[in-house]
Design a protein around this nucleic acid. Structure first.
Lengths: 109, 109
DNA sequence: CATAGTGTTCGATCCTTGTCGTACAGTTAT
DNA sequence: ATAACTGTACGACAAGGATCGAACACTATG
């Protein structure tokens, strides 16, 4: 029988439909977070652990950014051993905010 | 002969095509500014002076928000007597950031 | 001219948030 | 068990920006 680890149990995900536009825009208005999203958009789901992103910030800051993205309904996270894998919630987010991801992530700065 | 007033001469407008995505997102991420844009979107061009908006901030703050919107290429302003009239730069902005205005302004919060 | 109206500019203040170091928890490997 | 690795939590700090009052410039009106 497979049991969730205590660490994974603390991972709460929000329904993108419940996310206020303000929260979504605040999340998307940071360049480091957009960089994370673009990276996710160009790879298969669940193939990128938090530590595999090439970011211009320390790991404590990176961890903060992943938490912001998760609480804005932009990414989903899943623990796999010591790693935390990520997935862009493209479809769900697009349903709540049509065109927003496309206008901000599928695009150069 | 019609001469621009000294006040109008100081009004500089940017080309939305030259606006960085970061600047556009920063401008759109404020609720007071989105309120201004929605108001403009629902009225004819050049019919709304700065003072005619019902905003929850004092006039000094409102003036700041209009300046931010202008420097982000989101609005155009023109002086008419003592009033400063506004216009949403819908088409130009859409050309540079397709879908962004639609996703943030043509929508409730 | 004097007064009222419209909007900007300038400091000052306050609050948010991005950033980091450190400590900690859980996992994997030796 | 010990060590290395992955990621989070917490406290502190600094920078940016939203806010306001007051002073100012320009315009319109009496």
């Amino acid at each position: 029988m497979v049991v969730e680890s205590a660490r994974a149990r603390t991972l709460s995900h929000v329904d993108p439909a419940e996310v206020p536009l303000q929260t979504a825009l605040d999340a998307l208005a940071d360049p480091v977070r957009r960089s994370i999203l673009r990276d996710l958009a160009s790879h298969d789901d669940w193939t990128r652990a938090c530590g595999t992103f090439d970011l211009p910030v320390k790991k404590a800051t990176a961890s903060h950014h992943f938490a912001v993205l998760r609480s804005a309904g932009l990414i989903e996270q899943r623990d796999e051993g010591a790693r935390r894998l990520n997935r862009l919630r493209r479809e769900e987010f697009d349903r709540s905010f049509p065109g927003l991801l496309s206008a901000t992530v599928d695009r150069a700065d």
